[in-house]
Design a protein around this nucleic acid. Structure first.
Lengths: 247, 247
DNA sequence: CGGAAGCTTGAATATGCTCAACACGGGTGG
DNA sequence: CCACCCGTGTTGAGCATATTCAAGCTTCCG
């Protein structure tokens, strides 16, 4: 019982392990996320004021034009960034995976919603602390800059998909994107995964209707490019062939 | 003659004006562009190795996956950033106006073309110098970070246009975008301007064909939303009404 | 087992595309 | 000065792709 308490105590840290806070020890974000750019004392201080939160699919994480008092790191799951027009038409403008940083630094009025697409775990980080750290730690700023540049590349890549690809190329591109995130190293062969997005979300991501998305899935299934176990669980037979279908 | 030489000499600078290099004195980028974040000595040093260049519409500024030895600031004109698919389909993924910074910092392999959309003047800045300055001057890095965040916002805004708007909303959105850049302060009333893009470029920006763009222009003309003087020269009667047509 | 949400399928429709002809405007050369 | 040409933009008719609307089917969960 004492052991369990240790594990879950946010304030404890292991003196044998170069003073990394206990909660952060097994955290992916500590290595590849923004926390990797922090000094040990900074990480310790930050960990005192941060906490984890869990969210169900569809739950709103950051509302449009809402004042938020915390940033976050995605620990697991997929967060979708969306924009909506007055009449309700919706577009997904970005997906965030672990260990992405969540929240718009120096936000003006970017009118953007962040929702849990799948079940999501976050590590909430107080707004003030982060902004303070960014000012004093160039490595952290560089890390955030880097993520922003990557997001910009991804956004532009997606503009090509939205503007110039056919429905079947769009769906293929989406599947390829997800497959790439499941196992970034694998470039060929077969991959199996759970789709983190509903058909509605996929449609909003691709600028299509759910019916069209559904028809394209059916087409891919009947041409044996994919197998569909239960709507969400997909197996891609050949990544390189799927890649060819992306246009 | 001596006077003329003074004006065009890049090495000269006016000692009466806090040692701002001569070439930079009348430059918009010095105030609103990245040069505004430089110390006087840095600006002087940079100006020694920089030079202006002029480009005709359609000229390629940075090639896809090309190694470039210089960054640049846009002094005038419009630069289009494009991506193309194997079969030639093209998508404009961004427009850069003065005094935007041009060139991908820490570029990996962003496979992106930069072309002059209109006649363009650049101030070329040596790659090494800029990267050196970025390392040593946090204000410069912050400025570039800021521009990147703005570009990301613009890209996402445009994803909504590409994915969810109708052809007429797309064209209205494009005209509104250009009108906003002509006079950022003006929100209402009438504006007149030269289109910096051809119909082909507009189509590639909006994910449409030139025929569809043309038809939408005709429709806007016949409903008196715009007047078309000579294909390129446009007058928008009411900005607020145009805004309503953007969806 | 029953109900609801999410997904698929079908038929009719509409929006934007393709292909083709034509108009306009600006430059060149007879 | 006019005729011609070329690049660019417009217009029209027919077509294809994706949407809409409606019905039926799965899957998940209580």
């Amino acid at each position: 019982m004492a052991f369990l308490t240790d594990l879950t105590s946010e304030k404890r840290w292991d003196v044998h392990n170069s003073s990394v806070p206990r909660v952060c020890m097994s955290c992916e974000a500590r290595h590849h996320g923004i926390c990797g750019s922090l000094r040990e004392d900074e990480l310790l201080e930050l960990s005192r004021h941060s906490f984890q939160s869990e969210h169900q699919p569809g739950e709103e994480l950051i509302g449009d034009a809402e004042d938020v008092d915390s940033y976050a790191t995605v620990l697991s799951g997929v967060v979708k960034l969306t924009k909506i027009l007055q009449d309700g038409r919706q577009q997904v403008v970005g997906l965030q995976f672990a260990p992405d940083f969540l929240g718009r630094l120096f936000a003006k009025q970017s009118s953007l919603n962040a929702d849990a697409a799948s079940k999501v775990r976050l590590c909430r980080l107080p707004k003030g602390s982060i902004e303070q750290l960014v000012k004093n730690n160039p490595k952290l700023e560089a890390k955030l800059f880097e993520q922003t540049l990557r997001e910009l590349d991804e956004a532009r890549e997606w503009m090509v998909t939205l503007g110039r690809k056919t429905a079947s190329e769009k769906v293929a591109s989406f599947l390829y994107l997800i497959a790439s995130h499941v196992d970034p190293t694998r470039q060929t062969g077969s991959v199996s995964f759970e789709l983190p997005l509903s058909r509605t979300d996929i449609a909003d991501f691709l600028g299509l209707t759910i019916e069209t998305v559904s028809r394209q899935f059916t087409k891919l299934r009947s041409t044996h490019v994919i197998e569909v176990q239960n709507h969400r669980h997909i197996t891609v037979g050949s990544l390189e062939y799927l890649r060819d279908l992306c246009g």
